[in-house]
Amino acid sequence: MAARKFIHDFVVRKNIRLNPRHFVLELTPPEKLPAIFPGQFVQVLVEDTGSTFLRRPFSIHFIDHSSNLLKLMIQIKGEGTRKLSRLMEGDRINLIYPLGNSFILESISPVLLIGGGCGVAPLLFLAQQFNLRDIRPTILIGGKTKKDLLDVEEYMKLGDVLISTEDGSDGEKGLVTEHSILKTGISAFNKIYTCGPESMMKKIAEITGKAGVDCEVSLENTMACGFGVCLCCVTPTVHGNERVCVEGPVFNTKELRW
C-alpha cells in the first residue's frame, strides 16, 4: 500500500530568485509534514491564468522537518510557472503530495549525483539523505554558463561538487555528459543518480551501462493527474508501459526501454 497522499493549502514563506529563469519556493503546510522521500514530487495548482488548466508537477527540492518546510526549485517555462514566480510571502498555493516513488539509497560510498539545469532540484534532498547515512556524495552539476548553475553553494555543503559549463565559464568546458569524471572515474562509483534533460540522462544511461554501474534516473514526462489514473505520463519499460507518476518518477536504467 502506497503512503497516504494529501491535498493541502501551503503558505509561501519565501520566494527566492536564483536567476532570471529560476526560483525556489519555501512552503509550509497547515499540519506537520508526513514522511517524504527524495525523488518524490508534488502537483501544484496554478489558478486564474488564461492558458493553464492542469496542475504542474515539481520534484521536491528539499524537506526540512525541523522548520516544517518543503522547498521547490522551479524553472520558468510558461504562463503557469511565471505566475508561481510572482508568489509573495504569505500567499497560499494548493499541493497534492507526496507523489511517486523515490530514489533507492545505496548504503556504500562512493555515489555520484549528476544534475543538468533545473534537474539538480531533487538532488539536494537526495544528498542530504545520504549525509544522514554518513555518505558524502560527489555531485556533478552542469549548465550552459556559470549563471545557469543553480544554488551551487547549497550543494557544496552536502557533497563534493564538480562543475561543467558549455561555455567554460565555470568548471570543465563542455556538456555535463563529457565531464572527465565520466570518462575516467565512473567505475569507482557504486551507483549513479541523475536528473536533467532526457537527452542527458540517456547519454548517462549509456555511459553507466557500458561501465556496468547501477544508475537511477528521474523522469519528467508530461502529466495530467499525477497520481496514477489518467495514464498519460507512461514510459516504456521491461514491464510494459509504466506510469512515471506512480511506478516512477525514478527508474533504474536497466528497466527502461531507451
Binding site: 488548466f53 495514464l231 507512461v234 508501459n241
Partner: peptide, 25 residues
C-alpha cells in the same frame, strides 16, 4: 486482452481542457 495503449506523448494541455490519446491501456 492486455493492451499497452499508444506511445508517449499522450497528453496535450489546451485552453480550458486537455487532449489525450491513451488508447485503452
Amino acid at each position: 486482452k492486455n493492451r499497452e495503449g499508444n506511445p508517449y506523448p499522450r497528453m496535450a494541455e489546451t485552453p480550458s481542457g486537455m487532449l489525450n490519446s491513451v488508447g485503452l491501456q
